[in-house]
Computed example of a mutant assay.
Amino acid sequence: MADEKENKEEFKHINIKVVGQDKSSIMFKVLRSAPLKKLMTVYCDRLNFNIRELRFLYDGSRIQDNDTPTSLEMEDDPAEIDVVKEADGGACA
């Protein structure tokens, strides 16, 4: 029974709100088992960004390409992902 419940969870969707630094947002509906790399790629394509120039964060932690809503334990509907520009920094001498 537990395996059957887990399989059903795998095919459930979650709404995810992706919020940029300018506070604009785009809503996505994704499978809980889907890698978030696809969402990040679609977001960048829509807004004409290079994915290497952005950082996607959930609860303050950077999202990795193979992370899924399930692996990040996203519960809110919609869950919220923040997007910030990758900062190139250096140490002050």
Rank of each mutant, 00 (worst) to 15 (best):
8 K>S: 04
35 P>M: 08
22 D>V: 05
19 V>E: 00
14 I>K: 03
11 F>P: 02
4 E>P: 05
25 S>Q: 13
15 N>D: 09
40 M>D: 00
4 E>L: 09
16 I>W: 02
35 P>W: 09
10 E>N: 10
21 Q>W: 13
36 L>C: 06
2 A>D: 14
15 N>E: 11
7 N>I: 14
33 S>V: 04
8 K>R: 09
37 K>N: 12
36 L>I: 07
8 K>M: 12
24 S>T: 07
20 G>W: 12
40 M>Q: 03
4 E>H: 09
34 A>G: 02
2 A>F: 15
7 N>Y: 08
11 F>Y: 12
23 K>G: 04
39 L>N: 07
11 F>S: 03
31 L>D: 04
15 N>Y: 08
37 K>I: 14
16 I>L: 07
36 L>M: 07
32 R>E: 06
37 K>R: 11
29 K>C: 02
13 H>M: 08
39 L>Y: 02
37 K>T: 14
17 K>T: 05
42 V>Q: 12
9 E>L: 13
27 M>H: 06
26 I>N: 08
39 L>D: 01
3 D>G: 05
33 S>G: 07
24 S>I: 11
13 H>W: 06
2 A>I: 15
11 F>H: 14
7 N>W: 10
16 I>F: 01
23 K>I: 12
6 E>C: 10
11 F>E: 05
19 V>K: 01
13 H>C: 03
28 F>N: 00
19 V>T: 05
28 F>M: 02
17 K>I: 03
15 N>A: 14
22 D>M: 04
28 F>P: 00
16 I>G: 03
15 N>W: 10
30 V>C: 01
6 E>S: 15
4 E>Q: 15
30 V>R: 00
10 E>W: 15
10 E>H: 15
25 S>V: 15
10 E>F: 14
31 L>G: 01
12 K>P: 11
19 V>H: 02
9 E>D: 11
37 K>H: 11
32 R>A: 02
12 K>D: 12
13 H>E: 11
5 K>A: 11
11 F>Q: 15
41 T>G: 00
17 K>M: 06
32 R>P: 08
21 Q>F: 12
40 M>V: 12
25 S>L: 05
12 K>N: 09
19 V>R: 06
21 Q>Y: 11
22 D>K: 04
16 I>T: 13
5 K>E: 12
30 V>E: 04
42 V>T: 06
31 L>C: 06
25 S>R: 09
34 A>M: 09
27 M>P: 01
2 A>C: 11
6 E>T: 15
33 S>K: 15
21 Q>R: 12
27 M>E: 04
33 S>H: 08
39 L>M: 11
26 I>C: 04
29 K>F: 00
41 T>W: 03
36 L>E: 01
14 I>N: 03
20 G>A: 15
39 L>K: 00
20 G>C: 05
39 L>P: 02
18 V>C: 02
6 E>Y: 11
